[in-house]
């Protein structure tokens, strides 16, 4: 058996193990209101997925959070470029990033709800959670560019854009990829949490909030399962896009 096939089989076995643990726990509890079984959750998810509203809701939430993540990637990379050039700016910005990383996300959600319209809060929160990770990883990537290659660019007087494309970008990409890997899940979870607290119309967060309100635990589990599946899907998709940009350097 090939190594990837063995790994896939192992992942499947681990998944089945935990589903079994969940099913046994649900049977022991015996009340779907407290703990629905995996089968009930799956059935509910399939029922939800049959309606167009489900896909519209997922689509809106995904777009909102992705917009936040994209904003954070652009802003984080731009700030990293600036702080790479200016140690003073880096000294000024570093404590702000540390503060953002260590402040509970709920505090930011409440503050953003006070300052901004509820529709935009999930986007801002997702961006805020991803920003420090992107900034710090891209900064590391920039600091790690081989100085010998920069000297090469200087001696051969490579145009700035060519040096950026051929030296800076491939040097930073592995760090950006690592940032996306750790920040995507974070941004998505924070975005959905912000939706739960701000309940913007037609969002996953609103559906989770309503399921909790009406004690629809099975629906709550189904929506949570949807969040996990979408999170995995987005992560795979975006990392594949980055890998394509990275080319043979991967």
């Amino acid at each position: 058996m090939s190594a990837p096939a063995r790994k896939a089989l192992q992942t499947l076995a681990v998944l089945l193990f935990w589903l079994l643990v969940w099913a046994l726990a649900a049977r022991a509890v015996g009340q779907a209101l407290l703990l629905p079984s995996p089968l009930e959750t799956g059935r509910e998810l399939v029922t939800l997925a049959r309606s167009a509203v489900f896909w519209l809701t997922v689509g809106k939430s995904v777009l909102r959070v992705l917009a936040g993540i994209l904003l954070a990637v652009l802003l984080g990379a731009a700030l990293a470029l600036l702080t790479h050039k200016s140690p003073l700016l880096k000294a000024l910005l570093a404590p702000v990033m540390t503060l953002v990383k260590s402040t509970p996300v709920a505090s930011f959600i409440i503050l953003a709800l006070v300052w901004l319209g509820r529709g935009i809060v999930p986007l801002v929160i997702a961006a805020l959670m991803v920003l420090p990770v992107v900034w710090s990883n891209v900064s590391q990537g920039l600091a790690g560019i081989d100085p010998q290659l920069l000297e090469l660019a200087a001696v051969y007087r490579l145009p700035k854009l060519r040096a950026l494309r051929r030296i800076t970008w491939p040097s930073v990409l592995p760090h950006l990829r690592a940032a996306l890997r750790s920040a995507l899940g974070l941004g998505w979870k924070a975005g959905v949490a912000a939706e739960v607290l701000t309940v913007p119309p037609g969002s996953i967060g609103k559906r989770i909030y309503e399921a909790k309100l009406y004690l629809e635990t099975t629906e709550l589990f189904a929506w949570t399962a949807a969040v996990v599946l979408v999170s995995l899907g987005i992560e795979r998709l975006l990392l594949r896009l980055v890998e394509r940009g990275e080319g043979r350097h991967a």
């Binding site: 010998q148 290659l149 000297e151 090469l152 001696v155 051969y156 007087r157 051929r166």
Partner: peptide, 11 residues
């Protein structure tokens, strides 16, 4: 200007 360094300095 062109240079060949002691290390090849290839991308």
């Amino acid at each position: 200007t062109a240079a060949v360094f002691q290390e090849p300095r290839l991308l």
